[in-house]
Design a binder for these strands. Structure first.
Lengths: 226, 226
DNA sequence: ACAAAAGTGTTGACTTTACACCCATGG
DNA sequence: CCATGGGTGTAAAGTCAACACTTTTGT
């Protein structure tokens, strides 16, 4: 390929992440407020452009760190967006990723060089976003529903352990349906991928729940089939 | 973003497709022989660089047509490859796709402007390929095994109809295990997504098999759960 | 002792698997 | 009439879905 062929000149890659969490029974996504053009002042998904001297995942992690202060987030490829006019100025193709994090483990930077206000938004109340980020986010929410049926995405949400009622609520929220407590518990335990730490979480005025953890060596498995 | 920031300059997007078929009981993939530098003379997966004036899928279809003469291939996103040194000359990020075609419907161009010799290779006998295409192909073969569990990928393989023994062999080849004839038939028929055309295919010296077709309006469904 | 949520087993419905014989064709 | 693969049903095992009562805690 010729470097100066104008057909290929000035393309770039956007790395865009939809980082989700569950906060008091509400599924939320992390948005940042842009402080530069284009789309100055608008909310956007976390991400930015890949540099020439870094691998794809390096660039993704750098962008997330620069704009939110978050590190070591488990991210999975979601989709690729390549309409020729999806970005002004120069041609950009966007690669989108999904992450799911535990709020207790993250410390957001509110203000960075390039952005102000990183904030969690309920996925039912998303403002107009920069670029085609509304389209990317809608797609990511749909993919999250599929991804959650397999266990690996939950590992990153609960690195410190979780109770079964708690994890069940996450499923119910994301899948948007009620699940039977007994069947849920039976199913999850039968997969041999979590264990009872025998520790308990005390709530106010209720029976305490046992804390479970993922077995490190266990493979990713499908929890629900449909 | 500044257009002339050297951090973003001269990046490009490779669109790479692993186009599979099943030929006399062997799963094959389409490779082309390169006629230009870099990697002149080497075999490679079908694909090339996205132009600025086309959407992603337009570019993919154009590349496939230019290099093989094939059109209207059903392709699905597979993965993204973004190591910083994966291409010489300039920084390229590769987006990979999977397709599955019926040999009877395709007419390969053997010689084009940019390539010579488009040829089908058994996936067990793949030569050294240009770029990181061996890595991309290995990944695509693994994803094909997962994709085949859902029916939509089969539609493109058999647009003109198929017999149940025939389609069963495709599953057995790709999943690499024997399936019970009765159960396979029962399962596929129970999904309400194929119908018996009442036509028959005559083989030499055997009972003829019925020809089935996909019901156009039927949704994509999961055939096997594991 | 009460309110609030955690924990626990059984049954029937459905799905999956295993398995063996007859049928239609060409040579 | 034989060789070859196509077509068919049934029963046992396993998985899923529905359902109600007891336990533990804080107040």
């Amino acid at each position: 390929m010729e470097i100066n062929n104008p057909k290929y000149k000035n393309q770039g890659i956007h790395l865009i992440s939809s980082i989700f969490t569950v906060d008091k029974g509400i599924v939320k996504v992390l948005l940042i407020k842009r402080k530069n053009n284009p789309y100055n002042g608008m909310w956007a998904l976390v991400g930015g452009a890949l540099y020439n001297d870094e691998d794809l995942m390096e660039g993704l992690n750098r962008e997330i760190f620069e704009k939110t202060g978050l590190k070591n987030i488990d991210l999975r490829l979601c989709n690729v967006f390549g309409k020729k006019d999806r970005a002004p100025l120069i041609r950009m193709v966007a690669v989108s990723y999904i992450g799911l994090v535990d709020l207790k483990n993250v410390e957001l930077l509110k203000e960075t060089l390039k952005t102000s206000n990183a904030e969690w938004f309920s996925i039912t109340e998303i403002p107009a976003l920069a670029y085609d980020h509304n389209e990317i986010l809608t797609d990511s929410i749909n993919k999250l529903k599929i991804a959650i049926l397999r266990t690996d995405i939950l590992r990153s949400l609960y690195p410190l352990g979780f109770t079964l009622p708690e994890i069940q609520k996450v499923y119910e929220l994301i899948l948007n349906k009620k699940l039977d407590r007994r069947n849920f518990r039976k199913k999850l335990l039968s997969l041999n991928l979590i264990y009872d730490t025998e520790k308990k979480v005390n709530f106010v005025g209720r029976k305490p729940a046992n804390i479970y953890k993922f077995i490190e060596s266990a493979e990713n498995k499908e929890i629900f089939r449909r």
